[in-house]
């Protein structure tokens, strides 16, 4: 494997290795109605980008025009924000006011509807605990999305870095990379992750398989047996795709207790920043050091 070899393999060697395992890209490209040459050129230059021979910005400059003409504005991605430049976008976070949460599970269902998760998978659940004895009782309703921890236990353990933290605060899962080992599920202290067993609702619901949610901005087309994300782990992603189109997460939009708040923790004047400053604020299992981005108000 050359793990400890002093000589790094050349780009060509990488290329050869990969070309041996992976399907022939040129053939695939031929079958697509899009420009084969463009594809080949892009791939070539992509390798150069990886090898540090051209800058990613230049790569985008060269190709963005042809991409837009080829795909329309479906493909309007600028150069990825580079690490050296300080990230200035929002850092998302959520505040849930437990005094207002009525334990209705609207968040749970809205999340199902938005993310069209399979049976047995709820990105958000609402935990109910009854306290006290008749007639002096109370019920605690605890909605639990993914905490999008700043020090996420799931990311920590993921062997492939399929789980990783985005700069906007969201913990993402690259389902194309995930091997489905479920280590992250075991590691998450909040039980926020689920495995996609590959089942669905099609038997009871016409058209369920037709639409999948563009989680993490990925267009995965129809849901099909054996196709990613089946066999991988999934979780609440703060409705990344909604955020990108200017919508708050589905559960926040619809929370009928008006208990869920959302916004940019980077902005000290945002609603969430102000709420999180309340003495009522706390985070779940704070002692574990996971630093959740979901703040509760007790």
């Amino acid at each position: 494997m050359g793990l400890f070899s002093k000589v790094a393999p050349s780009i060509k060697e990488f290329g050869d290795m990969v070309n041996n395992i992976l399907p022939d890209g040129e053939k695939e490209l031929e079958q697509s109605p899009y420009d084969t040459k463009l594809g080949l050129d892009m791939a070539r230059d992509a390798r150069k980008v990886i090898a540090g021979k051209i800058k990613i910005e230049d790569f985008h400059k060269v190709y963005s025009a042809s991409l837009i003409s080829e795909f329309g504005d479906h493909f309007v991605s600028g150069p990825e924000v580079s690490k050296d430049k300080k990230y200035t976008g929002p850092k998302w976070g959520m505040v849930i006011d437990l005094k207002k949460c009525i334990g209705c599970d609207t968040c749970t269902v809205s999340c199902k509807a938005e993310n069209r998760t399979p049976p047995g998978m709820s990105y958000n659940v609402v935990l109910e605990t009854e306290l006290g004895s008749y007639p002096n009782i109370s019920v605690m309703n605890l909605p639990r999305p993914c905490m999008q921890c700043d020090k996420p236990a799931c990311v920590q353990v993921c062997p492939t870095r399929a789980s990783f933290k985005m700069e906007n605060g969201i913990v993402a899962i690259d389902n194309d990379r995930c091997i489905g080992c479920r280590y992250c599920m075991v590691a998450c202290p909040y039980g926020a992750r689920s495995y996609d067993f590959g089942n669905g609702y099609e038997e009871e619901m016409t058209g369920y398989d037709e639409i999948t949610s563009p989680e993490y901005g990925m267009d995965r087309g129809k849901r099909k047996k054996g196709k990613v994300p089946e066999g991988t782990v999934r979780k609440c992603n703060f409705c990344f795709h909604r955020l990108e189109r200017g919508e708050e997460p589905a559960c926040v939009e619809t929370c009928i207790g008006d208990a869920r708040f959302f916004g940019d923790f980077n902005d000290p004047n945002s609603v969430v920043s102000k709420l999180a400053a309340s003495p009522r604020a706390f985070r779940l299992k704070e002692e574990l050091g996971t630093q959740p981005r979901v703040v509760y108000l007790r």
Binding site: M1, I21, C158, P159, T160, R161, A162, D176, R177, C178, I179, G180, C181, R182, Y195, D196, V228, E230, G231, T232, V233
Partner: peptide, 16 residues
């Protein structure tokens, strides 16, 4: 026990 045996090499390629 892997959900995506087809992705298994990722565990070798990507090192966390």
């Amino acid at each position: 026990d892997l959900g995506r045996p087809d992705h298994v090499f990722n565990s070798v390629i990507y090192w966390n």
